[in-house]
Design a protein around this nucleic acid. Structure first.
Lengths: 240, 240
DNA sequence: CCAATAGTGTCTTTCAGACAGTATTAT
DNA sequence: ATAATACTGTCTGAAAGACACTATTGG
């Protein structure tokens, strides 16, 4: 009822003080790998849910921002830096951790497969990629987090340039389309897909070609430096 | 780096413990009143920012969910219950409160003007509606919160039934359109607006009419019980 | 020349945007 | 009758969806 904030993490006396809460970040790290949409899970060492798989996450340090914390966890889990990261939702049900009240700010990250070491960077706990259609039992409410992330990514894929984050520097249009198909979990029409790309003026040919086995080699493309204002005018929205 | 969560709000010993953080909720309460989009602000009594205006907010109690906390603050500030409430974003910059680290989960609410007592329900602090285009200086990062809320509402207004939350039980189509115009801050075409409503099959005539001064009386409408699955098929998305 | 992959064009439908006239009521 | 408000229909252009053929390469 009182609109003031507490003085410090170490509570000072006062009628309106309430115990501070542990705050964690958990990150849904997604990539497209081996033709599948995959998420990083780490094996829990401690109770509760010891031995089960969980999203990489951890405490927010007192001096870092929430995003910094998420980015730190991300780098520790995958070794990949400079990736797309977006706040997802904050989970704060009183019983979401069996040991007591923990508030968790969930983030999601999109990492390009080529920028992401396959081998787990994390030594003390196992970290693995899991196909999102074949998941193990997950600790806490982490499955909820993942599902929210998937919905968000799929939705935003259609009206943002989110998908670009999963591609290497240069790529063929077929590869790009395949990436979209994998995330959206449905097939797209090749001609319509390319028409839309051309219309939005998002990619440019890099001049080189790449032969994919036999058959005509595919033109290589890169993403143009996008004028976001221009995109917005075309009805394209931005990631938050 | 450790993926486990702490045991309790009262930290137990362990290498991975970090001090818990004060967690608050702040709520952007919006309504359309007197032809304007308005937001509830309360006058701060304590330092810092004493005397300045802020979003209604407060601590998350140990046993309540984040949404419950937001709803509690909402009712205390406006007296209105059973209103649309949606989590907005979590603000956690280390320096967002000058006294120390505070994490704030922002929510936004849409309350129908007729369900919302104009007089401040809150006795110990002044609470007022402010036109979002004529705001006082606001405490903390609350202006950021408000702007995120406005953007979210405006975006979602176009592909969800969010706007319905601001209407009374029955209303004329002109009133509905006006509400949309006020929120979006631009004029809409009457015929196109109605065509879309009809296409989406969102409203039904209630049978009565209401005379608005001289001229032909307007048909009264109510919202249909919407089949959300059906809406989704029509390209309509749901609020989260 | 054959197999394999890359690349392109058209038709149809749907919907948004722009726009002006008719209908109903009170005075 | 007139003023005031409520209500409706059409044309046009943009874009999505469905769909099939041509082009280039290696073997």
């Amino acid at each position: 009822m009182n609109q003031t904030h507490p003085d410090m993490p170490t509570p000072a006396p006062g009628a309106d003080r309430l115990p501070p809460l542990p705050v964690t970040v958990d990150t849904v790290i997604l990539t497209v790998l081996e033709g599948r949409l995959q998420v990083v899970l780490v094996k829990r060492l401690d109770e509760p849910f010891a031995g089960q798989w969980a999203l990489p996450g951890g405490f927010v340090h007192p001096t870092e921002s929430l995003e910094s914390a998420a980015r730190r966890e991300l780098e520790e889990a995958t070794g990949a830096g400079d990736v797309y990261l977006e706040q997802l939702y904050t989970f704060g049900a009183p019983d979401r951790d069996t040991r007591g009240r923990v508030v968790s700010v969930a983030y999601f990250a999109l990492v390009a497969a080529d920028r992401c070491p396959l081998t787990p960077h994390r030594l003390e706990a196992e970290a693995h990629w899991f196909w999102v259609k074949q998941l193990p039992t997950m600790a806490f409410d982490h499955l909820d987090m993942l599902q929210v992330a998937l919905q968000r990514v799929r939705t935003k894929l259609e009206y943002t340039t989110l998908g670009f984050q999963l591609m290497p520097e240069t790529f063929t249009l077929q590869e790009l389309q395949k990436t979209y198909e994998i995330i959206l979990d449905r097939e797209l029409d090749k001609r319509n897909f390319r028409r839309r790309l051309k219309l939005l003026d998002l990619v440019e040919a890099v001049g080189a070609k790449r032969a994919e086995g036999p058959g005509r080699p595919a033109e290589l493309y890169r993403f143009k430096d996008v004028d976001f204002f221009h995109l917005r005018e075309k009805g394209f929205f931005l990631p938050f």
